[in-house]
């Protein structure tokens, strides 16, 4: 391909891995957003095939189930010209007792340049980054981080609101068990937004304010303040472990309904990382209203993941 292909501004990017947002600088976040912008523009011309990662092999290593993130990463890698391998543990050696490190080393031996890893245990991508010599992109590690989700949420806010600094962003739902919450908090606080986390106290860790956010147990109280409301998914098994009494009660207290939307600013931007449970975190009308950027998030996710893969796999380390 032509040399103009390498004309993306990589700023001072030197990271081979993307393990979390917490360790990124503001300059690095801006570099990712700039590259994402490039890929948003470029994708307006679907005929265009990139060759940035031509000859490279990217492996999706998903120890925990995922549809959207896996598909999004796979497509992003192929759009950049890479070959992809898909690995999920069902029916694999992992179920035969092979350790995840051995599994990854075996796939590495096929000639892989980068891994996209999702695992239910925090820190697993970090352990692989120490063990394997290639790029590791964290696609979600337990309740720790989901960096590309944090990036694409912030990128979507930036696109819609033209800024992040000074905005008030409400994160609603299961903060305690959410990697999306943590990656959002790190991204948004670094970029100067005010973040309010909101949910029942059983799902809001009392130490969370030490990350520079405010916590609230009353959604109706905080909604009028919010420029952005990001509605996190509720996992049904949390109810069974006694963290809230019933889905119905959760919905009454924290579900986004049109009545609640009326309390918000007219230009409130609604985000939801999904997969969304219509009727539990939000009603169908809310999901589909003009203020909702849920589908834009999905589109932006592709561009952000292309940017991340491009930067990490071509980083000069």
């Amino acid at each position: 391909m032509t040399s103009s292909e390498t004309a993306i501004d990589c700023g001072s990017w030197t990271k081979k891995h993307l393990l979390g947002i917490e360790e990124l600088s503001v300059a690095e976040l801006e570099t990712i957003f700039k590259a994402s912008e490039f890929f948003v523009e470029a994708s307006r011309n679907p005929e265009k095939k990139h060759t940035f990662l031509k000859g490279k092999v990217v492996a999706n290593l998903f120890f925990e189930s995922s549809t959207r993130t896996r598909v999004s990463f796979g497509l992003a890698a192929r759009r950049l010209g890479a070959e992809t391998i898909d690995f999920s543990p069902a029916g694999s050696s992992v179920s035969k007792g092979e350790s995840f490190i051995d599994t990854a080393k075996n796939i590495l031996a096929l000639g892989v340049n980068g891994f996209i890893i999702r695992h239910s245990v925090p820190g697993t991508p970090h352990l692989l980054a120490q063990q394997l010599g290639v790029s590791i992109i964290n696609a979600g590690d337990g309740a720790h981080e989901h960096p590309t989700q944090g990036l694409l949420d912030a990128f979507t806010i930036l696109q819609e609101k033209k800024k992040i600094k000074g905005l008030t962003v409400g994160l609603v739902g299961d903060i305690a068990h959410s990697r999306v919450a943590r990656s959002n908090i790190h991204t948004l606080t670094k970029l100067g937004a005010k973040v309010i986390v909101c949910g029942p106290p059983t799902l809001i860790p009392k130490e969370i304010e030490q990350l520079g956010v405010r916590s609230s147990y009353d959604l109706d109280k905080i909604l009028p303040e919010c420029d952005v409301v990001n509605v996190l998914r509720i996992q049904f098994e949390r109810q069974r472990s006694g963290l809230f009494p019933s889905i119905q009660e959760y919905f009454r207290l924290f579900g986004m309904t049109m009545d609640r939307v009326k309390k918000c600013r007219p230009d409130m931007l609604l985000l939801a990382p999904g997969p969304i449970n219509r009727g539990i975190e939000l009603t169908p009308e809310v999901a589909d209203m003009p203020n909702s950027a849920i589908l834009k998030q999905v589109t932006n996710g592709l561009a952000v993941r292309m940017a991340v893969l491009y930067l990490a796999l071509s980083a000069k380390v």
Binding site: E22, P122, G123, D141, G142, A143, H144, E145, A176, H177, R179, R182, P205, E207, I208, Q210, L211
Partner: peptide, 10 residues
């Protein structure tokens, strides 16, 4: 259980 476990999601 504390600030560190909350941060690390453990």
């Amino acid at each position: 259980e504390g600030f560190e476990s909350m941060r690390l999601g453990l």
